Amino acid sequence: SEEEEEEWRRAKERGEEIIILGILWKPNDEEAERRIKEALRRV
């Protein structure tokens, strides 16, 4: 969703871990980033 995407962007800017759509994303975690982008597209 729009607000999840916004939340994720803010976490990326701050360089902090975030759990979004049930996926743990850490800074520079390209695999998780790809999965999150896929999940955001499906929503």
Rank of each mutant, 00 (worst) to 15 (best):
S1Y: 15
S1E: 13
S1A: 14
S1W: 15
S1V: 15
S1P: 13
E2C: 15
E2Y: 15
E2G: 14
E2N: 13
E2F: 15
E2L: 15
E3H: 14
E3T: 14
E3Y: 14
E3M: 13
E3G: 14
E4F: 15
E4G: 11
E4I: 15
E4M: 15
E4P: 15
E4W: 15
E5H: 08
E5D: 10
E5S: 07
E5Q: 06
E6L: 10
E6H: 06
E6G: 05
E6W: 12
E6K: 07
E6D: 12
E6S: 06
E7T: 11
E7I: 14
E7H: 12
E7A: 15
E7G: 08
E7Y: 13
E7C: 15
E7Q: 14
E7P: 04
E7S: 14
W8V: 02
W8E: 00
W8F: 14
W8D: 01
W8P: 02
W8G: 00
W8S: 00
R9I: 10
R9S: 06
R9D: 04
R10D: 03
R10H: 08
R10N: 07
R10W: 08
R10S: 05
R10Q: 09
R10G: 06
R10K: 11
R10Y: 07
R10C: 13
R10E: 04
A11R: 06
A11W: 11
A11L: 12
A11F: 09
A11T: 03
A11H: 06
A11M: 10
K12D: 02
K12R: 11
K12S: 05
E13S: 12
E13P: 00
E13F: 08
E13D: 10
E13T: 08
E13H: 07
R14Q: 09
R14D: 05
R14E: 07
R14M: 09
R14H: 07
G15E: 05
G15L: 06
G15V: 04
G15T: 03
G15S: 06
G15D: 03
G15W: 07
G15M: 07
E16W: 11
E16M: 10
E16I: 13
E16S: 10
E16G: 06
E16R: 07
E17V: 12
E17G: 05
E17C: 14
E17I: 10
E17Y: 10
E17H: 09
E17K: 08
I18L: 04
I18H: 03
I18C: 14
I18S: 03
I18Q: 03
I18R: 04
I19T: 12
I19N: 06
I19H: 05
I19V: 13
I20K: 01
I20H: 01
I20A: 01
I20M: 03
I20Y: 05
I20D: 00
L21E: 03
L21C: 14
L21Y: 05
L21V: 04
L21H: 09
L21K: 06
G22D: 04
G22N: 03
G22A: 04
G22Y: 11
G22E: 02
G22C: 12
I23K: 02
I23F: 03
I23W: 00
I23Y: 00
I23S: 00
I23V: 06
I23D: 00
I23Q: 01
L24D: 00
L24G: 01
L24P: 04
L24I: 07
L24T: 08
L24R: 10
L24S: 07
L24M: 08
L24V: 08
W25T: 00
W25Q: 00
W25G: 00
W25D: 00
W25I: 02
W25H: 00
W25C: 03
K26P: 03
K26G: 05
K26Y: 05
K26H: 05
K26I: 11
K26N: 06
K26S: 11
P27Y: 03
P27M: 03
P27K: 02
N28L: 06
N28S: 06
N28F: 12
N28T: 04
N28G: 15
D29Y: 03
D29G: 01
D29W: 06
D29K: 01
D29L: 02
D29M: 02
D29V: 03
E30F: 11
E30Q: 10
E30L: 13
E30C: 13
E30R: 09
E30N: 09
E31T: 08
E31L: 07
E31F: 05
E31D: 12
E31G: 06
E31H: 06
E31M: 05
E31R: 04
E31K: 04
A32G: 03
A32S: 11
A32N: 02
A32K: 01
E33F: 07
E33V: 05
E33D: 11
E33M: 07
R34Q: 12
R34K: 11
R34G: 06
R34M: 12
R35Q: 12
R35A: 13
R35N: 06
R35Y: 03
I36G: 02
I36L: 05
I36K: 01
K37R: 14
K37V: 14
K37M: 13
K37F: 12
K37N: 14
K37I: 15
K37T: 14
E38D: 11
E38M: 05
E38G: 05
E38V: 05
E38A: 10
A39H: 04
A39Q: 06
A39K: 08
A39G: 04
A39Y: 06
A39C: 12
A39F: 07
A39E: 05
A39P: 00
A39I: 08
A39N: 02
L40S: 00
L40H: 03
L40Q: 02
L40C: 06
R41N: 11
R41D: 08
R41E: 09
R41I: 08
R41P: 01
R41L: 11
R41Q: 10
R41G: 08
R41Y: 08
R42A: 12
R42T: 09
R42I: 11
R42M: 11
R42Y: 08
R42G: 09
V43W: 14
V43Q: 13
V43H: 14
V43R: 15
V43P: 09
V43Y: 14
V43A: 14
V43S: 13
V43E: 12
